[in-house]
């Protein structure tokens, strides 16, 4: 009789354990835990790429494993770069943040400013496309470009915890056309201005003819 009772207790215990596991199952998808046992924070890695028209300093990894504070708190990851116009003509700045691993598209806000203009200000999602050219850098002029990241307010932990987003900052200069050049480019008979940094697979530089016999070399 005693043996039967012991067996029944053992079976009951096992059943209880099973029920406990079953009850815990819905919560098994909790976010990854950090070393200290706290939820792992979201991270961002940023790389910067050289540009044909703008000298970018530094290039390569400029922000590694930078952790986000909780949503709504101040002091998110930030990047500071120097851009120098290395062309002989004034340039507007266009930039994009090409996604290498886009894990925080919907969770992060980004703001980038430089040369007296705001280049990006909004969700990280969509920053893979070139921004509208803004600011002005004259030939040889430099500017400090600041990029700040922060988590959106009111996010649930699942939307960001333990996620690592990797972006590549890319820049291009867009030459500022003089009114005369604009007029020329609008004319159907005008030839395409050569030499501008081409976004495609080729780069051209034009050589103009000596149209004024007897004039001196510039």
């Amino acid at each position: 009789m005693g043996g039967t009772q012991q067996l029944a207790r053992l079976a009951g215990g096992l059943a209880g354990l099973g029920l406990a596991f079953a009850a815990a199952a819905p919560f098994s998808g909790v976010p990854p835990q950090g070393v200290s046992g706290k939820p792992a924070p979201a991270q961002v890695e940023v790389r910067a790429l050289a540009s044909p028209e703008l000298e970018v300093n530094p290039v390569g990894t400029v922000l590694a494993s930078a952790e986000f504070p909780p949503p709504g708190e101040r002091g998110g990851p930030a990047v500071k770069l120097t851009l120098v116009n290395q062309t002989p003509v004034p340039q507007r700045i266009s930039m994009r943040m090409a996604p290498i691993a886009s894990a925080l598209d919907d969770a992060v806000l980004v703001r980038a400013s430089g040369a007296g203009a705001v280049l990006l200000d909004g969700p990280l999602k969509g920053t893979g496309a070139w921004s509208l050219p803004a600011g002005v850098l004259s030939s040889g002029e430099s500017t400090t470009l600041r990029v700040r990241f922060k988590l959106k307010k009111g996010l649930s932990g699942d939307a960001y915890r333990g996620r690592i987003d990797i972006r590549q900052l890319e820049f291009k200069g867009v030459p500022i056309q003089t009114p005369a050049e604009e007029e020329e480019s609008e004319s159907p008979a005008a030839t395409t201005p050569a030499g501008a940094g081409s976004p495609g697979g080729n780069a051209s530089a034009a050589v103009l003819p000596a149209t004024t016999p007897g004039s001196t070399t510039p």
Partner: peptide
């Protein structure tokens, strides 16, 4: 992507007169 550019800003490499 395949993309290449240069730092001429659209200005000719050379423009020699009276050589």
């Amino acid at each position: 992507t395949v993309a290449i550019g240069q730092n001429s800003g659209g200005v000719a490499i050379y423009n020699v007169t009276n050589g």
